[in-house]
């Protein structure tokens, strides 16, 4: 199981770590039993992501996928941000080991949860459709 150089770059020097104090939306996903927890905070203006920060407890892939999704999502419309898929995240990192695909889902789910949180807080309908489904065989063995 080897990580790409890009994963190692993001893991070693993650981008956008932290919490936006006056965040417009907050997404928290994962659970400590499975070992990965992620919190995304966003700033929204004109239905676009102005700012995005993350905190993650997890393995190298969990941290790298969190970091890269903040880069990918910044400046996107809310509609486009919730469409980011695990496959796109993995691609952006030059691939992930199969057993690590769940980490990229966590990052995408965290972003979706933050966007929905913003919308609901503002009396609007959530648009993400919830967490992306993962097939069992991608959980590794």
């Amino acid at each position: 199981m080897l990580y790409s150089d890009k994963v190692m770059d993001h893991f070693g020097n993650p981008h956008n770590v932290g919490v936006i104090e006056d965040a417009d939306g907050v997404g928290e996903v994962g659970n400590p039993v499975c070992g990965d927890m992620m919190k995304i905070t966003i700033k929204v203006s004109d239905d676009h992501l102005d700012d995005i920060k993350f905190q993650t407890l997890g393995c190298g892939a969990a941290i790298a996928t969190s970091s890269v999704i903040t880069d990918m999502a910044r400046g996107l419309s809310l509609e486009d941000a919730v469409k980011i898929t695990k496959a796109e995240i993995a691609q952006e990192l030059d691939g992930l080991p199969p057993a690590k695909m769940h980490c990229s889902v966590l990052a995408a789910d965290g972003l979706r949860a933050a966007v929905d949180d913003y919308l609901v807080k503002n009396g609007r309908e959530p648009i993400s459709g919830g967490p992306e489904l993962v097939e069992d065989d991608e959980h590794g063995r």
Partner: peptide
């Protein structure tokens, strides 16, 4: 990355969850 090799019993290193 700092030149030190150790190991872990963490799930994420084993390829299972």
């Amino acid at each position: 990355a700092k030149g030190i090799a150790v190991s872990t019993g963490s799930a994420c290193s084993s390829g299972s969850l």
